[in-house]
């Protein structure tokens, strides 16, 4: 399949890919398993109606809302996720493993469960909701609820990517900078963050992508109203009830946006390393 005629184990070094050939078959099946359903969606698209379907007022509202809320939740993930990853990667403390396990929990939790948990935290009858309502802040059925639901499920992606990058980078340079008299904040700004920038960037992009696809927690916690809380996934879910063509067209739109976002994330780090 991949003949490198003169390559022999003795050549060593350059040409060796380190993969036994029989791996290609299951790898191809794995790739097909992901690609085939996408192809099936493509085959179902009603192309004649595609443009009108994805440019209807409801679709545009949903797309715009999805992009805006996902951007906001990514920002929220950065603001709280970066410090969290730093603490987890650099400062051993009691209960650290436990904390990490809990931070990663939304990765495996069914989103509906996340939605219920958020409801009992920020809802009107919730743990914080009552005090928030006294302060005049209402979260239920608002943009904010959507952003919170998205940030809840997206935060682990940022923390995992960044913590991995921090551990791989090690703290040699940071230690050197510190011995040269740099204050901790300066070290963070001038040494640590530039060092892990690729990991941080891909973590942020993954968070954005996850936010874009958020469905269960939003449905449970935020509700569904055009232009306010009905994001693209919720619009797809609703359209499926009455107009299968619209649901398929919107699915393709969401896939396209997701592919663009993820594609971006896997090009950027490489470029930055080169720069």
């Amino acid at each position: 399949m991949n003949p490198s005629l003169n390559a022999s184990p003795a050549d060593g070094g350059h040409g060796y890919s380190g993969i036994p050939r029989w791996l290609y078959l299951p790898a191809a099946v794995g790739a097909l398993f992901v690609l085939l359903p996408l192809a099936a969606v493509l085959a179902k698209v009603n192309w004649a109606q595609f443009i009108p379907l994805v440019t209807s007022a409801a679709s545009l509202d949903a797309l715009g809302l999805s992009l805006r809320t996902s951007a906001a939740s990514t920002l929220l993930c950065l603001v709280f996720g970066v410090p969290l990853a730093m603490v987890l990667a650099r400062r051993p403390f009691r209960g650290q493993r436990l904390l990490r396990a809990f931070v990663l929990l939304p990765l495996v939790l069914p989103p509906v469960v996340g939605g219920i948990a958020l409801l009992y935290t920020f809802g009107r009858q919730g743990l914080l909701g009552k005090s928030l309502e006294l302060a005049g802040i209402q979260i239920a059925f608002s943009n904010t609820a959507v952003v919170l639901a998205q940030a809840f499920v997206a935060l682990p992606f940022l923390v995992v990517s960044l913590e991995g990058a921090l551990r791989t980078a090690g703290n040699k340079y940071e230690a050197v900078a510190a011995t040269l008299g740099a204050a901790p904040t300066t070290v963070l700004r001038r040494v640590t963050l530039p060092l892990v920038m690729p990991g941080l960037a891909s973590g942020a992009v993954l968070s954005f992508a996850r936010s874009l696809g958020e469905f269960g927690a939003t449905l449970t916690f935020a509700g569904s109203l055009q232009g306010v809380t009905r994001t693209l996934p919720l619009e797809i879910y609703l359209q499926r009830e009455s107009d299968a063509d619209a649901a398929v067209a919107l699915s393709l739109l969401l896939v396209a946006v997701a592919v663009a976002v993820v594609g971006l994330s896997y090009r950027k780090p490489g470029r930055q390393v080169g720069a």
């Binding site: 809802g123 059925f141 449905l219 509700g223 569904s224 109203l225 809380t229 009830e241």
Partner: peptide, 18 residues
């Protein structure tokens, strides 16, 4: 404030007091 996709979702918002 919300148009849900199912009766269960509407009921959920009411029983939770939202």
């Amino acid at each position: 404030v919300s148009e849900e996709s199912s009766v269960a979702d509407v009921l959920g918002k009411v029983t939770s007091g939202e």
